[in-house]
Design a protein around this nucleic acid. Structure first.
Lengths: 314, 314
DNA sequence: GTTTTTCCAACAAACGTTTGCGGAATTGTT
DNA sequence: AACAATTCCGCAAACGTTTGTTGGAAAAAC
């Protein structure tokens, strides 16, 4: 339309010194008028750099993951990255498809929370081999080749256990998640180690809120004086059982949990919890990603510090 | 590596009849071995079709929007679409930047929840003009040129009110949100209209969970037999006050709410609520999008039907 | 033995950018 | 007036695909 070549237009739009001010002005004005926006696909193809991160999460609608995602999104915007969010639905097959999608879109890095049944980590490591960093978060493989950012699993469980000991509790119903997950193993181990023989433990493993409710309801017959919940989901189930049994907190029974912080504030009194912030974890994961992209080949397992937030439940 | 041309490889991978079975096999085997995945950017560029939807939302970490997003993500995957999620932070400036990003990535359609201060809808309609459908959801512009999908505000309040009447409740504490929001006005009006003079109403307006808790705690002195909460956030505050007062549900007091469904299931008994499902809204928005892409130019405002979900709280 | 058909596979153009290189026109220097 | 320097811009290649068209060899038909 202006009678000039494509390359001149390209340079004019990028304020290249080769182009005269007069031409630049004509080009920018027309671009404005036509609502021109550069085609990201063409740019990515030409540059072989996508500025795109993949993010695989079991589900978006979860108060831990959504705050993690929000943190990543904020940082992506600040750093001119886009992100592709994919849900695995905790299904290893879908997870594989998601990785495939990520590869097709030539992501520059992947944030991944594995499913509880993921056993083959090769697809992840293959990404790493072609210089696409993979940062595992929350649920991470127990493999030394993996970059991991986690909540301080052992530390958080230790803090919770110490709080229980300080309050001189004697019989604790401790609810943990799926035994295969490293998160469960670590929390359980630290919890047991800290309590030692100083208090009696009733340990139950549950896979969801409903199982937590049933397990709690049954275990209440043994008259524990405290309930410890390893996660928010377990806490919600357990709290239903306590309400069902008509017990008052902390009079009849004390409660303490490891949590992202949202759920504990829904009850009265608010539940005392050890904070594991998804938002903070997201920030940490992003900076870890940037370090990898900057050339750091140092494999690392990073953890966010945790904090006891006092409610009135113990 | 195989001594054949690129185009032959391309056809072999797509099972084109021009290619011999022997060649096809050699190609697919090598592709497998090399972990070949087609470059989505190149495909998109070549085809000028991205199979990409944009999604702009005030914030991801919200139990209404995240279920909306989850629904869209599911459908996208089923239909071979990707999606680009962007947060506006309820800031019109960021919203504009997000639209720009969408244009650059040549989205095929946009799901948009506008900010509370959005006044210029031209950027949205410009998308529509270049055959990129825009489906507004939840917070939508009051403009007849817009495709809209919403929860049925009036209908949901009416159902809640009717339920209260059926249970022969006589004194209802009704908690509503900020008076300036259209959502509040619509629900309040329908609620009042339905209850009429058949039951006594104590109406309170609150801006957050904490105010809901305080308002409930104070209003309990007037001995209402039922509490109605207009939203999830209000419900959480109100429930805390009920626990604080040591009241049992539904024996001492009945509770009913309008909700997305997650919060009511945290209590025992579960709270009866009128469902305004973000998930269903997402499904509706997606099918509306597909209809637009299929050529429907019929502008529409769709609402999801609402449903009473019985817990044991009334 | 020649022509026709069939089967495979290669060539080239196109999608929208960016950028090294070269070239024309203008200006400046003796 | 001749030459050098400067300013501005176009050509062409490349990123990784897809696909219409063309080409060549082997197989079949006459």
């Amino acid at each position: 339309m202006l009678g000039i070549s494509i390359s001149t237009v390209s340079r004019a739009l990028k304020d290249h010194p080769d182009i005269s001010d007069k031409t630049k002005q004509r080009v920018t004005e027309l671009a404005q008028a036509l609502d021109y926006e550069p085609n990201a696909n063409a740019i990515n193809l030409r540059s072989s750099k996508n500025n795109l991160f993949g993010l695989i999460v079991p589900t978006i609608s979860n108060f831990f993951y959504d705050s993690f995602i929000a943190a990543i999104e904020e940082e992506c915007r600040r750093n001119n990255y886009s992100m592709m969010i994919l849900q695995s639905g905790d299904d290893p097959v879908v997870e594989q498809e998601n990785i495939k999608l990520c590869r097709q879109n030539r992501i520059g890095g992947l944030f991944a929370c594995i499913t509880s049944q993921t056993s083959n980590f090769e697809p992840f490591f293959k990404l790493h081999n072609i210089d696409v960093p993979v940062i595992f978060f929350d649920k991470v493989p127990d493999d030394s080749r993996a970059n991991r950012v986690c909540v301080a699993d052992a530390a958080s469980a230790t803090i919770a256990a110490n709080t229980i000991l300080e309050k001189k509790k004697k019989k604790v119903l401790a609810l943990f998640g799926n035994q295969n997950l490293s998160i469960t193993k670590k929390r359980l181990e630290a919890f047991q180690k800290t309590t030692g023989k100083k208090t009696k433990l009733i340990i139950e493993h549950v896979n969801n809120a409903e199982e937590a409710q049933q397990a709690t309801y049954l275990a209440l017959k043994e008259n524990p004086d405290t309930i410890f919940c390893m996660s928010d989901e377990i806490l919600t189930g357990s709290m239903k059982a306590i309400q069902q049994a008509g017990l008052s907190i902390p009079g009849d029974i004390a409660v303490i949990a490891i949590s992202n912080g949202f759920i504990p504030k829904l009850y009265f009194p608010e539940i005392t919890y050890v904070e594991t912030s998804g938002y903070k974890l997201g920030k940490l994961a992003f900076s870890s990603m940037m370090a990898c992209l900057a050339g750091s080949t140092f494999l690392q397992e990073l953890t966010i510090e945790c904090l006891l937030v006092e409610g009135g439940s113990i």
